[in-house]
Design a binder for these strands. Structure first.
Length: 264
DNA sequence: ATAGGCGCCTGTAAGC
DNA sequence: TGCTTACAGGCGCCTA
C-alpha cells in the first residue's frame, strides 16, 4: 500500500491525535516484528515525523518509535480483523492494522537507526533540494539499471514505490525500461519535476486506495488518487493521452506500466 | 554491479 | 462450482 503519499496522509491525520499525548502501552503478541515497543510506555509523543515510507514518533526522554507499514499496514481508529497492535493513548486508542504482516515497528534511542539500516542509507526526500536534476542525472549516469529500478531504490530517493514510480515516468515521457546511463539531463529534470508533482497531487487526494481497499485513512476514509492514475494497473487500457494500449513489463520482479508511444 | 529468485504473510482475482 | 495459480503499495538476503 503505502508509498510516500499514503504515509504522509497518515502522518497528518495522526498528528493531532498523538502529539502531546502519552502512549500508555502498546499491546501486541509479536515481539519479533514489533521490537522494543515497551520503551514507549508512559512516554509522551513530542513529534510525529516521516522519512521516506517510515513514520517516526519522537518520544520524550530521547526515545523514538519507528513504524514501517510494509505493503498493507496502516493505522485505524477502530479495531479490524487484522489489528496486529493496539496503541493505548491517554484518551483513546490507535489500531495498527496489517493483513500481510510485512510491516515492522522498532523502539530505539532517538536517532539510533542501527537496527534499521535502510533508514541510515536513505536518499534525499523528493521535496528536498538535494533531489535535484543534477543529482538524479549523476545517479542515473552511473548505472546500467532501468530507470524505474533507480526510482524505486530508496537509497537514491526516499518514498517512491511502484505506483508513483510508474506515474512519474509516464508524466516525464521516459520509458521505465530505459537504462539509467541513457537518460539525458533534460529528461532527469523532467523526472524530478514529475515525481514532485505526482506525489504532491497524491497527498492532496488522500493517497491511492486500490481495489483491495487495503489502504485507508485512520478514520476509514479512502483516498482518491487511484482514479487519476494514468498507467499503473491499467495494462491493456488506452493511454489517456494518445489511446495506445498501456503495456506491462517486469522490472526487478515487479510490474511496470507504460505507454509505448508517449514514453521512449 | 546487477539481475533473478526466494522469503516473509495473507487475501483476492483470474484461469482451467 | 471448485481447485490452482498468479499477483499485490515493500524490502532483505542469497546466488550467479
Amino acid at each position: 500500500m503505502p508509498e510516500l503519499p499514503e504515509v504522509e496522509v497518515t502522518r497528518r491525520a495522526l498528528r493531532p491525535l498523538v502529539e502531546g499525548r502519552r502512549i500508555l502501552a502498546i499491546e501486541h503478541a509479536d515481539p519479533e516484528r514489533y521490537r522494543g515497543t515497551e520503551l514507549a510506555h508512559g512516554r509522551r509523543v513530542e513529534t510525529l515525523g516521516r522519512r521516506g515510507k517510515f513514520l517516526l514518533f519522537g518520544l520524550e526522554g530521547g526515545w523514538e518509535l519507528i513504524v514501517h507499514l510494509g505493503m498493507t499496514g496502516g493505522f485505524r481508529l477502530a479495531p479490524t480483523p487484522h489489528t496486529r497492535a493496539v496503541f493505548r493513548l491517554e484518551d483513546g486508542a490507535l489500531y495498527y492494522h496489517d493483513p500481510r504482516r510485512l510491516g515492522r515497528i522498532w523502539g530505539v534511542p532517538a536517532g539510533d537507526y542501527r537496527q534499521v539500516p535502510l533508514l541510515l542509507r536513505m536518499g534525499p526526500e523528493p521535496f528536498d533540494p538535494g533531489f535535484s536534476p543534477a543529482y538524479l542525472h549523476a545517479r542515473l549516469r552511473a548505472t546500467r539499471r532501468p530507470v524505474k529500478a533507480v526510482l524505486l531504490d530508496q537509497e537514491v530517493v526516499a518514498g517512491i514505490g511502484n505506483i508513483y514510480g510508474d506515474e512519474a515516468l509516464f508524466r516525464a515521457g521516459v520509458r521505465p525500461t530505459r537504462r539509467g546511463y541513457r537518460v539525458r539531463r533534460r529528461e532527469a529534470e523532467g523526472i524530478v519535476e514529475a515525481v514532485r508533482r505526482v506525489l504532491k497531487e497524491a497527498i492532496a487526494a488522500g493517497g491511492s486506495t486500490l481495489k483491495d481497499q487495503s489502504y485507508r485513512r485512520p478514520d476509514g476514509a479512502i483516498g482518491y488518487f487511484q482514479v487519476r492514475l494514468s498507467v499503473y494497473g491499467r495494462a491493456g487500457e488506452p493511454c489517456p493521452v494518445c489511446g495506445t494500449p498501456i503495456r506491462r513489463v517486469r522490472i526487478q520482479g515487479r510490474s511496470a506500466h507504460y505507454c509505448p508511444r508517449c514514453q521512449r
